[in-house]
Design a binder for these strands. Structure first.
Lengths: 266, 266
DNA sequence: GTATTCATTCCGAAAAATGATAATTATGCA
DNA sequence: TGCATAATTATCATTTTTCGGAATGAATAC
């Protein structure tokens, strides 16, 4: 039985690092152990490992730990690397600012929608797709777009295979209905969601296509229905499509300086 | 005898992360495997582990990997923690006292400048960057420094992707202009801001570099224009640079109790 | 259309992590 | 100084993970 463990050595290592990095002052082994519910000897061993590698280090003259030099160096590299490939995020941020609502990019993997990136414009309100979260296919705009682009045969098979969980009153749980909606979605080229996953939250999404028109991901917006009605969502489509076009140009480029991308009309 | 293994799972995980973070572009599993002399299935497994935890992620639409959201978040936390240690905070306080104005340290994350530490000398006046606050790239000194260090191609594309919001009369909203300013910034090695974000507040910043000249963060000063004119900012540069050099030295520094052996490879 | 490289899955042997218990060493306090 | 308490290290049987060769599938180049 392949057990998916969420508490392996690696997780613990990163949990410890995260905890140390999140504290204002240096922390003792005991504090870390109690914060992360680790047995004390285990905490010692793990922290010792991290210390040997320079990922943590003792604060001068004490036995309390702070982030290590290797970790800081690595982090700087990571920040730099992330910044070099940040155009996707910039486009997302720009469209979120233009629309004035939360926008997110999602992909489908293993028959669930995984949100890769998202931008909140204002303070948290209503729904938030945190990157890394997973949502079902049948009640999200991204999921609908994905399904709508499958060959009809595969689409129907998938619809029947999925557990069409009823999250709200408007969740589509009937295969016939879902197929009809997907058909519309396919013809129209974009999808809407009417409080089907979370009550009070509506949204819409458009596909991000590769040059050969393969679906790469979806760009969507989620908004409290109190602010924008289901019908009003349509006015987001044009900006979303414009941004999606930009993204598809941006995303696939090999990001090297002298790379072979001829498109400068970004 | 407790065997000190220099090639355990943890070492490999960090080696992979380091390699991905050090590349300019997304890398394939095979590239990572060959770069780190790992068997391909092993590399695949390890990378899969990291991907599940959000430390690495696939570049959209490809099978190549880039740093993941979790890792970027953690790295930003680490940088923040690194500069909040007593010794480094003291350096910041010293330079703030010397200059007589508010100094702050900022990093870029998600295309936004996040201030990780700051020191006010006098009573609140004009702008205050509270740690945790976020400011745009195009109208802050720190943002300019980050952008100026991108390869030219990427820099221009990022400029075009950013929403160059006009905050004041002097905010640079024109891509050509911004590019010109960034070019100067790159050549000069530091940045100035002329009431571009908040009216009545000017500022400048210098980079804090790691030993291998990687950008870790920026050290900057913000001051009401009533007290110091835009032109007069230049006299802050030298003290700032001195402090920045001091800060990057402390990053390299190894504490006395960590002096075990000479092998300090990653 | 074939060759080749790359990505992915399988699985049994080998290695490492785990954490209870116990011993040892700091550390605070009067 | 001495004593009590907490912090740290040691030991070890058990459990869990890792490891990477071999095989297979997918993608791409030639």
């Amino acid at each position: 039985m392949p057990k998916i463990n969420a508490d392996g050595p690696l997780d613990r290592a990163f949990a410890i690092i995260g905890h140390v990095a999140g504290q204002v002052r240096a922390v003792s082994v005991a504090e870390i152990a109690s914060a992360l519910a680790l047995p004390l000897p285990t905490a010692h061993r793990l922290i010792g490992n991290l210390e040997q590698r320079g990922l943590l280090q003792k604060a001068l003259g004490t036995k309390r730990y702070v982030v290590g030099n290797q970790l800081v160096t690595l982090s700087a590299k990571v920040i730099g690397a992330a910044f070099r490939t940040a155009r996707r995020h910039a486009v997302l941020r720009a469209v979120a600012a233009e629309i004035g609502e939360q926008c997110e990019i999602g992909v489908v993997r293993d028959n669930v929608v995984a949100y890769v990136d998202s931008v909140r414009v204002s303070q948290p309100q209503g729904l938030q797709f945190n990157p890394g979260e997973a949502a079902p296919l049948h009640c999200t705009s991204t999921g609908k777009i994905y399904m709508s682009r499958l060959p009809e045969r595969a689409r129907e098979k998938l619809c029947r295979a999925l557990a069409l969980t009823k999250y709200t009153e408007t969740t589509i749980v009937d295969v016939e209905n879902l197929m009809k909606v997907l058909d519309e979605t396919r013809k129209r080229g974009w999808a809407k969601t009417n409080e089907e996953y979370v009550r009070g939250v509506v949204g819409c999404a458009v596909p991000i296509l590769s040059p050969d028109r393969e679906l790469i991901a979806c760009l969507g917006v989620s908004v409290p229905v109190a602010r924008v009605s289901f019908a009003e969502l349509d006015r987001f489509i044009a900006p979303l499509q414009k941004a999606a076009a930009l993204l598809s140009e941006t995303i696939l480029q090999v990001d090297e300086d002298g790379a072979d991308d001829g498109s400068d009309n970004l």
